[in-house]
Each structure stands twice: as structure tokens, then as C-alpha cells.
Design a protein around this nucleic acid. Sequence first.
DNA 1: AGCATTGATGACTACGTAGTCATTTGTCAA
DNA 2: TTGACAAATGACTACGTAGTCATCAATGCT
Lengths: 334, 334
Amino acid sequence: MTSTDVAAHVGVSQATVARAFSSPEKVAPATRKRVEAAAAELGYVPNAIARSLKSQRTNIIAAVVPSVGEYWQSVLTAFSKQLADRRQQLLLFSFSDPAQLEDVLTSLAQYRVDGVILASASIDAGRLARVGSQQLPLVAFNQPAASGLVPSVSVDNDLGMRRLAAHVVENGARRVAYIGGVAATSTDQTRYRGAAQALAQAGIACPYTESGGWAYEHGYGAARELVELGELPDAIMVAGDELAFGVIDALEDRGVSVPTEVMVTGFDGLPQASWAGYDLTTLTQPVELLVEQAIALLLGPSEPEPADIVVAGELRLGRTTKSSSIFESRKDHG
Amino acid sequence: MTSTDVAAHVGVSQATVARAFSSPEKVAPATRKRVEAAAAELGYVPNAIARSLKSQRTNIIAAVVPSVGEYWQSVLTAFSKQLADRRQQLLLFSFSDPAQLEDVLTSLAQYRVDGVILASASIDAGRLARVGSQQLPLVAFNQPAASGLVPSVSVDNDLGMRRLAAHVVENGARRVAYIGGVAATSTDQTRYRGAAQALAQAGIACPYTESGGWAYEHGYGAARELVELGELPDAIMVAGDELAFGVIDALEDRGVSVPTEVMVTGFDGLPQASWAGYDLTTLTQPVELLVEQAIALLLGPSEPEPADIVVAGELRLGRTTKSSSIFESRKDHG
DNA sequence: AGCATTGATGACTACGTAGTCATTTGTCAA
DNA sequence: TTGACAAATGACTACGTAGTCATCAATGCT
């Protein structure tokens, strides 16, 4: 069922049918109605593939995201929603191993998408630069390493961690440990640096432990080791919320009370952070806003110049840091 | 940069360049190498849009999923991974309101995808039938209502709930409450029926409470009401894991201990169910297997006949039902 | 040597649409 | 009434690819 078929049925030219759908104002109302009626009757729907070939625009945005992780799933959801509002579709390219990235980018290149959202902390700068050297509109999402190489949108990791650190210090922490995700990623580095520098200003050291990933299990494992080594700090700052959930559960499992004995902070502001079971102190990323900015860069009128948009997050105070006496614990387990 | 450009550069015809990429075995090795070299030099990548137009295959599968919910996110991840292995891409259509479905299906129809995965409990049978009447290969994912109308793949909701009910009864529950999601959905109905019938055989009633959604907040609210009404049962069976997390947190928040005072069961087997903080007794859906079956139906050699594949889930025993004396509570909050 | 067979390649065209340009029709002012 | 002009429409073509068919060279066989 093509526009030509509909045209024949109505008794107009194919061009008129095409116009009736792509620029209806250029078709006389009466004609348009007849075309629409025939299309409905025959079940005609314009072919986006052919349209894309002709117009050189696909109205498709590709998202390259890691296939695991609570955080990326929430980001993806936001992109999907906001792109739908702009009548764009989201073509999903997920990968579980950074090594797959080459393959992913190769097949991505074939689809002539209108833009690409590169969302993964685990792409190194060199690779990023190579991708950016294509003429393809590209936005790096929450990848500090992208700065200067490709246009990027990020939460202010440094400021966020500083605020969390300040909060922890205010709440009386004197010894602090930091549990990171993957030390090789710029996200991890930036966050740790923020925390470490802010704490250093208060004269507090902040030993770094790499957990080796961003998932619950990694946080659980790292915290378990910390407990087994003894010498628990007053607070553990964790590089991400999902990690922090694991940290909290590991601590509670071993009888270490949060926040009474050890405070815990996260980073990201996942929905679960607000769940009563965790009620985590964290830095909430303004995901909707970040996504909006990313889309604006991609779909903006001009080519996205290598701008680096940094958006501040919002401090969320949960029960996991309410240790000092002036805070009334809103809830206790027992 | 097109195949014609490459052809001119190498000194062969466009057809040969096209063949070198789409069916390399039909091109002499020497020629193929020259073509590949030129393509690499010029940065040529085949245009999937043009190929799709010509070949009438897009290698794109559309997924229609609700834009919220932990469960659907995990399903999406599985689809994305498995489709990538088969060199198919995933075009994402998410919607937050069932009313948007018409729009979604309209824009979906334009992309001439090779198949559609319809994954939402909140599509009613009538609508399903209409979608199915198109000639488009379609698979309904975890929608019991689809049975007979369109090919479908589902977990065995009935059996799963029966097994959970049996487990709860074995653990000594005599009074049981059921918290559902959205009563109008077939998923909710099937699950409740399974639980109610299994409990009835043990002579136990199972009053149904609708929570009004599938999210954490809905479970939290429903459980809060249950507590405020007094008359707590021995066990609460919940229609989904995310709901169950809310139920557990609401109970604990009000000083009701799980599982000592009230047992809780979920359904889905989300990753978080295995987190130590919840350690939920639930029915784990074999998501990877379900997805595999769905893809097989879609991409199978023949048109997917309206088969209904039902796969049994696996009972996961967590701490939330270990109430009877013979079970040692692995952990307690306090 | 002559002919059939196979492999490699080129010329050509269709896929379905949208934009360009030309043509026709209707409207208004001189 | 007629020229000028705008609106509506049609004919035509290009977008980039892959499949069909034809062509040509090389090989094997009698």
C-alpha cells in the first residue's frame, strides 16, 4: 500500500497524496479529505523509510548505553519520553562490554540517525574523540572525559560531592572512607576528587577503595571488606546510589547500624533512594533537565558546538546521615 | 559517501561495491580487498535506510513498553541484548498513559519494522485484536489477555501464584491478604485468581485490595491502609515485586515486622528482590528465556501463528516468608 | 579446437517518498 | 474583458541500495 495506490484510488497524482500527509496546508481541504478517507479505507500509512531516504532525515536518535545499571535505565526512560514529545524515535544500542563498542558504533553508523547520545562512563577519551570526529551530531551524557572533545551534558559531579562531603562533616564525621566504582572512568575520578578536596579542607583524609563496578554487588563486596578490616569510619561516601544500597545492606547484615555507627551517602538520586527502606542521603541528578539539555544540543538549530553543559544537582537528605544528636531519626529499624 | 563514490574510486561498478558488502562471497577476493580499502579510506558505510527500502526489511524490531516500572526496564534490557546478538536493532516506543497507545502505534506503523513486541499489561483485548489484525509480525509479552488473539509469550502467572500460595500456607499462614496492581489488567486478574484458588483449596479466604498501580508508592499506600485498618493477616501476597517493596517498607515503617508478624511475597524476581535489604520471597520470571521465545516467534522462519507460549517461573525463597519456627531468620532489623 | 559451464562483473531498474518545476484553474483589479 | 497573480495540482526525478539479467573471461570437457 503506497501513496501511488492511494492516488490511483482517489484520482489524483502521487504528489498530491504525499503532500496531503507531509504538508497538508498545501492541499485543498476537499482534496485532502478525499485522500485521507481513501488512505483510511485502504490502510495506507506513509513509509518512513522511503521518507528518510528522500529527505535525508530519519527522525531517529540513537542512544548508546550500557546494558546494565539502574541509573542508565532511568536515563533511558527520560530520553524515550522526551524524544517522543518531539516526534523522534529512540533507537537503542546497548552494550555490556566496552570492547563491543566498536561493533555498536559500526552498526549505528549505518542507520544514518539524526543524532547520537553517548551515555557511558566507560568510554575513554581517545575513543570518544574518534567518534566525535565523524560529522554525526553527538552528545556525551554524563561523561566528564568528553569535555572539550565532544559536546556534553553532565551533572556537576565535583560540586555535588563537595556538598555531600560538607554535609557529612557538618553531621560530625571525622573519619571518612570513599568507595568508588571503576577507577579508570572519569566520572569516578571527578566525583572522588570533589569529595577528597572538600574533606581535605576540613582536614579529613579520604582513603579510596575501588569496588570494581557500579552495581549493588560491588558496593556490597567493598563494604564487607571494609567491615572485615575493622576500623570503620564515621561515614562512607559512595560513588553511586546502587553501590550505596549494597554498602548499606552489607553494613546492616554485619550488624553495623546506619547511620548510628556509620553514615552513608550515595550519588545519583535513583527512585529507590527515596524508598523508605533505604531513604538515602544522596545527590539527586536532575535527569529530566539533563536530558532536555542533551536533546536541545542534538536537535538544536545549529550544529552542536563542543559546549559543555554542567548542571548542578540537588542534595537529598535521607536518614542515612542523620547521626548527630540534633537530628531526630525519622525512623529506626527495631 | 555512497557505494557509487567508492565504485568510482576503485574503478568498478556500484553493483560490485554493493555486493562486496552484502554478499562478499560473490566478489573476487582481490576486488573485495580493493573495495574494502577504498571504503575504509573514504569512510564509506552502507546506508541501512536505502537497503531497507530496497530489501523491504529493516532489521529493526519495535518494542512498545510502558515508560515506567522496574520490571519493564529489565525486560527491555534483555531484549536489547538478545536482539543485538541477532544483528537486529531495537526501536523503542514507550508510553506512560494507555491513551497514548494509538499515537504510538501510528508512528510505529510508519517505520515498517520487521516485528513488534507489545509489552504492557494495560492494553485491553479489543485494542490488542485490532493491532493484531495488521499483517505486522507481533508478539505480546506477558499479556495473558492476548491469548488467542495474537501470539504471546508469558510467564505462568497462575502456576506461579499457586506455588507462592502453597509456600505461604506451608509456612503457617491462615489468614492471607492480596494486594493487586491494576484490577482491570489481565495480568492482575490471572495472578489473583491463581492465588485465590490455591488458598481456597486450603480453606483460606484471600481478600483482594487494589493498589491502583505497579509502582513502589502504590504498594506502600495499600499496605499502610491495611495496617491502619488493623486486622493484619499472617501473610500478604503482592502482585509484583516493586509493589512488594513498598508493602514491606510500609509495614516496617509502622513497626510491623516482616516476616515475624506478617509474611510478604512478591512476583517477578527483580534484581532488587535478591538484594539483602529486601531478600524477598517471590516468583522469579525467567526473563531471558521469555525474551528468547518472543524473539524466536518474531524472527522465526514462518509467520508467527497465534501460539501462546507459557513458561514456568522459579520460586525464590527469601527471608520475607521465613516465619515458622523451623526457619532461622538470617537477619533481623534491630 | 569447439563448446558448455562456471565465476566475476556491469548495466539497469525498482523500492516509496518529497521536492522542483511546470501547468492549470480560479480570483481580482484595471 | 483581460492581464496579473496566487492556489492547486501534476509530471518528473533523485535519494542509495540490491536484485535481475546480460556480458565477458576463464576453465574443463569431448
